[in-house]
Design a binder for these strands. Sequence first.
DNA 1: GATAGATACTTGAGTTATCAAGTAATAATT
DNA 2: AATTATTACTTGATAACTCAAGTATCTATC
Lengths: 144, 144
Amino acid sequence: MQKINHSIKFILELTRTLSILNRRFDSALGGLSLNEFTILHNLNIATNEKKRRIDLANKVGLTASGVTRLLLPMEKIGLIKNGKNENDARTRYVMISSSGKRMLDKATEDMKFLLNELIPSKEKSKLKALSELIAEIGARTYIK
Amino acid sequence: MQKINHSIKFILELTRTLSILNRRFDSALGGLSLNEFTILHNLNIATNEKKRRIDLANKVGLTASGVTRLLLPMEKIGLIKNGKNENDARTRYVMISSSGKRMLDKATEDMKFLLNELIPSKEKSKLKALSELIAEIGARTYIK
DNA sequence: GATAGATACTTGAGTTATCAAGTAATAATT
DNA sequence: AATTATTACTTGATAACTCAAGTATCTATC
């Protein structure tokens, strides 16, 4: 008789589902990858609509170097702009452009539409709690 | 006033946490990546301890080609073995080796230890239900 | 029982991330 | 105020995926 470890099962389901979600969203967001969407979303709701790269890294869950490489093509096609921080010359602010906003708005609609199919409606009430648990796990896992 | 879409927040937390988990586990499982762990775990609990590559792809959430590339080095270092399917010459069975089992057993202990830190104990009772919800989302997202 | 379609897998080319190591600027310590 | 440590970011080398296209085999249909 095999004893099931629910924690392990949980992590394995999590990785599986997210790999699948990543592929699905990457081809359903009008050219935006899921990580690019996350970047634009976070810039859009940020105070003053700007953020440091390191804060974005934290928000997306990538490393600083991952963010550098993710932002490079996004700047090239004009979704974001760079600004400087007068108080700290090490940091380069990232800002969303107006074309970035347009992309984001469209992608957000696509996202809502898809999520409506993917998340069972009777489970929607549990989502807030689930998000919080997942965020908590992320926080505990994070090692700078 | 910004209306929060819990579905979107859920997806964003999911990607963030999983990116972090992946990095953490990749350096905490005694040389095994999280995906490699998943492969070995699934082979280990499979009937007859063998599986087709396509079934593994489904279990891990990768594409068939991703599995081909993931298994290649695993075979090279002897964690898995290949076998053939008498009834279908297209498929190549994958089996866990005894050294693979040893690796898995050690990694499973590491995994349990880490998860004990990462998952708040008061939330553990909810894990089964959450796994099921996440699996359901994965199933709905999956497009072969 | 030939042919068209589906399935299982692999491969080439490209993308997206990692880590480790480096640069430059700021903050803390003495 | 000089030194050391820390932080923000970038870069070179590499790993781990993806998609699209290919091969081989099996299944269904006529």
